[in-house]
Amino acid sequence: MFIAGILALLVTMALTLWRTLLGPTLFDRLLAVNSFGTKTVLLIAVYGFMTGRPDFLDIALVYALINFVGTIAVLKFFEYDDLGSGKYQEDDF
């Protein structure tokens, strides 16, 4: 069961990676990378169960959060060209 799950997840990751390289706009890439991160979280979780030591789910938890924070940070950068210092001036960029 776990082996089937891992194989499916690896195929999925390959497809999302393909979109990451292909994606015409930056948003496509970001979406694909976000999806890729979610698949990584699942892969680590399933892998932990497959090897019979499911104690390392903390790492998957950290990944899930880091993935979200990273996506939001990049989006914020897109929106403001800045990480939000609040002193944005249009002519400087």
């Binding site: 990451t20 990378v33 890729f36 990584t40 880091i66 990049v74």
Partner: peptide, 10 residues
């Protein structure tokens, strides 16, 4: 940079 993040995660 986005790809570097994905690289680190992988």
């Amino acid at each position: 940079v986005i790809l570097l993040g994905a690289y680190s995660l992988t």
